[in-house]
Design a protein around this nucleic acid. Structure first.
Lengths: 240, 240
DNA sequence: TGAAATGTCAAACACGCGTTTGAAATATTT
DNA sequence: AAATATTTCAAACGCGTGTTTGACATTTCA
């Protein structure tokens, strides 16, 4: 990769920083910030051990740069749906789920964004606060708006929030639990090759849930094995 | 005279081993296997650095013992619902969700089981295979049976599996994404103090979804922003 | 008792880590 | 061409890690 040019010709000089960012994105996605070693990153980038310190200051600064870039790449390639007037809330909902899944599972981006985010959630670094403010909270607000429209005033803010978490939980499951899924269902894939299937299921499941929610949230039951608030047999609350 | 046991086992000698297991459970839950240090564990246990090596062989063996014990404790305190004849699938479903949430969020057990499992999923150790075989797969089978009953033959095996993952995804969300949740909703708690609320929501959401699923799974859509399966009116695919 | 077995401890070992160093190699400017 | 700035590199530094060591304390039991 570097034999065609001398080591310090301009193309190669710019390339070292780029190679470090690429290698670091892979390593951080694979093993997380703490377990990643700058020696491994530099080896994959074909650079010297001191390169990270020289080009980025230290390992943490490289990480935040990778985090920012991967997030930017994911949203650039798979942006949130733009609010086209005339779209039904159901259509906006499906588009939201689909783009979310794409960003998080995209094989073309090596699922780096999703895997880095998953690690950041289980083992937060100092970069998480900015990430929440700049990426996650807008995302949550977008989803909240869609679900509010879907509910058409049939539920309070708390229920709306819980519905949002039910949706995001379904999506992130395929990202957070890959190691378990591959062991539980060997042979089955849960990458973006299954994008259409996963989008269709999560959309159908969630829309049926939101449309079918009882108008007033039932009070919580206390006994461990008490009656669910659910309907008896035959009642299919798909009122529509 | 002692009994047939030739080895010495007064309560006092067993105390160090016990203290190590307790301290290790806390530390592993807080920072994960890789980031945990035996020095920290031993300090909290009031033991010497060499204690882990002496009593358990090495750090990894201590970890698998902690993993096994915490799983056992969680299931002992909050067992899966026993299949009482006469219970509706809806009742069995709610009991499943509730006990799952309890095991994973229990403050009394310091949420150790859930936090350790969350880390094990994002960063698997050699212990994950056994964990899947002994704990996770039976759990998945139990849920699959309940959902099969709920669906009453209205969906194929693949849809049943996807529904199970939608349910588990909702539950694990509160366990996997705590750091984000506390930043996104400061002041809100998502621990087992909210057990009733979370159980009620996940149960109502999922039952409405499962009861409301279309009888035949729709074919997956292919265009990135095409119609959702439930589009009332004004359906006009976006061109972009 | 006394010797063997068992548990504890401070110290040290071997290794991997992030980072720094100072010189050498290369680009850039004068 | 000379001088300066930039980038690379092998080597090493300082530190934290899991683990081992060997002396010492305690318990067991003939």
């Amino acid at each position: 990769m570097r034999h065609a040019v001398t080591q310090t010709d301009p193309a190669h000089q710019a390339a070292t920083r780029r190679a470090l960012l690429d290698a670091a994105a892979d390593v951080f996605a694979e093993v997380g910030f703490r377990n990643a070693t700058v020696r491994d990153i530099c080896r994959r980038a074909g650079a010297n051990v001191a390169a990270v310190s020289y080009h980025f200051g230290d390992k943490a600064a490289l990480y935040t740069e990778v985090l920012t870039e991967q997030s930017r790449l994911a949203y650039a390639k798979y942006p949130n749906p733009v609010p086209v007037p005339g779209l039904t809330p159901e259509q906006r909902f499906q588009a939201f789920v689909r783009s979310f899944l794409q960003r998080v599972l995209s094989a073309e981006l090596h699922a780096r964004h999703g895997r880095i985010m998953a690690r950041e959630m289980v083992e937060p670094t100092a970069a998480l606060d900015r990430l929440v403010a700049e990426a996650i909270r807008p995302q949550a607000e977008l989803l909240r708006g869609i679900i509010t429209d879907l509910l058409k005033g049939r539920a309070d803010a708390e229920t709306t929030r819980l519905c949002g978490m039910s949706v995001v939980g379904q999506i992130l499951f395929y990202c957070h639990c890959q190691p378990v899924l591959t062991r539980l269902f060997p042979g089955a894939k849960f990458d973006d090759g299954e994008l259409d299937r996963l989008t269709a299921h999560i959309t159908a499941f969630s829309l049926a849930a939101i449309h079918g929610l009882p108008d007033q949230p039932k009070p919580a039951v206390h006994a461990p094995t008490t009656l669910p608030p659910a309907a008896p047999k035959g009642s299919r609350p798909r009122s529509h």
